[in-house]
Amino acid sequence: MTSRKGNRRGTAGRTARILLAVLAAMALVIAGCGTDEDDGTVTMARANWDSGYMQAAIYAQLIGELGYEVSDPADNTRDPNGFYPALASGQFDLWVNGWFPLHDIYLEGERVTGQSVDLPIEPVGFQVRSGALQGYMIDKATADARGITSMSQLADASVARIFDQDGDGLADLIGCNDGWGCQNVIDSHIGELGWGPNVEQISGDYNSLVAGVRDRVASGEPVLFYAWTPNWTYQVLTPGTDVVWLESPALDDEEASTEVQGLRGCASDPCNLGWAVSSIRAVGNEDFLDDNSDIRRLLEVVSIPLSDIAAQNAAMAGADLGYSEAQIKADAADWIEANRDTVDRWLATARG
């Protein structure tokens, strides 16, 4: 497990990393490593968070039912910083793990390449529409004992120190992997919101870090962490019982709604999480989508209930000996067969 602190220099570093990824991806294409969109093959990638693995497998199998040969998304697991530049350059055709508006930054040529150009990237359809949540949580025992309901209370250094695990006086916020969009947003929150000067983000492997969160909750120790749904953490750390959501102000330039009605485990209703309520979407290379209109039509109509995603995520989290790629593909196949009537309508729409 690795960790990283100090997040106030995130913007410059992020831009440099993305630009390097763009150049590397373009070099691969020039060298002949891009996909051939005329040979009936599709090169899919997937995100490096396991809560999206089954969905990637579902889409891959559905595209296969249209008659395409689809690469295994597991062979092309990427973080957003690596995926979007490679998608723009044609190294990949699509993935189905786009989070918007969180990933809007990757659609902007100025932010990705440093040039005012339109990137050939297109979000398509809504796997989950306006149902994906993100925010900050703490253990319920500390929330109840200290009366903490909002991140704004961490503007008081004495409150922030409750969550200091390494003795430097700052609250340790268990955050996101390097290269994830949420890591960038947390960096921005720390840099711009009133509670930020008393908080540092701890980055590393999210699943390993949250295993530590579970241990602290079980032992009654204070802990502050980033969470999202759908994700397995929501199944093993029950909001309102084990942990609670904290409200937070949003960034001044946040345009999307950050309020959630009836959120279990939040002291207020509606609950202002400070994070835009997101949609999970497929994202494709525009040239590929133009050349394969049946795949575009399929991506436009596929949707997967949050409850189904959460149930599969919980199964992965509860597997004592780990969860294999074969099991993930089997889960996808089982989901398709359980929803065969709907899937067949999608495929008929795709075929036109």
Results as ranks from 00 to 15, higher is better:
16 A>Q: 05
16 A>D: 01
17 R>F: 05
17 R>Q: 03
17 R>W: 02
18 I>H: 01
18 I>T: 06
19 L>W: 15
20 L>F: 10
21 A>N: 10
21 A>E: 13
22 V>N: 06
23 L>I: 09
23 L>R: 12
24 A>R: 00
25 A>F: 01
25 A>K: 08
27 A>E: 05
27 A>S: 00
28 L>E: 15
29 V>H: 01
29 V>E: 02
29 V>T: 02
30 I>H: 04
30 I>S: 12
31 A>G: 02
31 A>Q: 01
31 A>F: 01
32 G>K: 15
33 C>L: 02
33 C>P: 03
34 G>P: 09
34 G>E: 08
35 T>P: 03
35 T>I: 09
36 D>S: 11
36 D>W: 05
36 D>C: 15
37 E>Q: 14
38 D>F: 04
39 D>G: 10
39 D>R: 08
40 G>A: 05
43 T>N: 06
43 T>R: 07
44 M>S: 11
44 M>I: 03
44 M>F: 12
45 A>F: 05
46 R>L: 08
46 R>P: 04
46 R>F: 04
46 R>E: 05
46 R>M: 06
47 A>Q: 04
49 W>Y: 14
49 W>E: 15
51 S>A: 09
51 S>L: 07
52 G>Q: 15
53 Y>G: 04
53 Y>I: 06
53 Y>H: 10
53 Y>T: 04
54 M>I: 00
54 M>F: 00
55 Q>C: 06
57 A>K: 08
57 A>C: 11
57 A>Q: 11
58 I>W: 03
59 Y>P: 10
59 Y>E: 15
59 Y>V: 09
60 A>L: 02
60 A>D: 01
60 A>K: 06
61 Q>Y: 14
61 Q>P: 03
62 L>N: 08
62 L>V: 15
62 L>P: 06
63 I>E: 12
63 I>H: 09
63 I>K: 10
64 G>L: 10
64 G>W: 11
65 E>K: 15
65 E>A: 07
66 L>S: 09
66 L>R: 15
66 L>T: 03
67 G>R: 08
68 Y>Q: 13
69 E>I: 04
69 E>M: 13
69 E>G: 12
70 V>Q: 14
70 V>K: 15
74 A>V: 10
74 A>K: 04
74 A>G: 08
75 D>K: 08
